[in-house]
């Protein structure tokens, strides 16, 4: 399963970078969304993929019997999802406001603050 996931993560990264390199600010944000999903999926894969082995310990035991799924990466992803959700909500509002103010969704037209 891991090799498939690795390829999926790779494709997601490639797609997100491609989207972020476009000029449209909407596509830029779509790229950011894909990128955060790619990162989450990467952490999920790194945690090791096992089926049907919840990290529950039977009463009296010190360790779960017969292997377990590592819960920590999932906790990390949960945190990361919440954070990226908040940040992306901000980004969406930002591009909406930017479009209202600048009347363009072309990043090339937003260069007055560069140099």
């Amino acid at each position: 399963m891991e090799p498939v996931m690795a390829v999926v993560v790779g494709i997601l990264f490639a797609a997100s970078i491609y989207m972020m390199l476009r000029r449209s600010i909407v596509k830029l944000v779509i790229g950011l969304i894909l990128l955060s999903n790619a990162a989450n999926l990467l952490i999920f894969t790194i945690g090791g993929m096992v089926r049907g082995l919840p990290p529950l310990i039977a009463e009296g035991d010190k360790l779960p019997a017969g292997g377990w799924a590592d819960p920590l990466p999932q906790a990390l992803i949960l945190t990361a999802i919440v954070i990226s959700f908040g940040v992306l909500a901000f980004a969406v509002v930002l591009i909406h406001r930017a479009y209202e103010v600048v009347q363009e969704d072309d990043l090339n037209k937003m260069r007055s603050t560069d140099t």
């Binding site: 972020m20 600010i25 830029l28 950011l32 940040v87 930002l94 591009i95 937003m110 260069r111 603050t113």
Partner: peptide, 16 residues
């Protein structure tokens, strides 16, 4: 707005 779009995009990239 123009500055913020660049700031937000690049800093999010860095965070990820």
């Amino acid at each position: 707005m123009e500055g913020a779009i660049k700031y937000v995009a690049l800093n999010l990239l860095s965070s990820i």
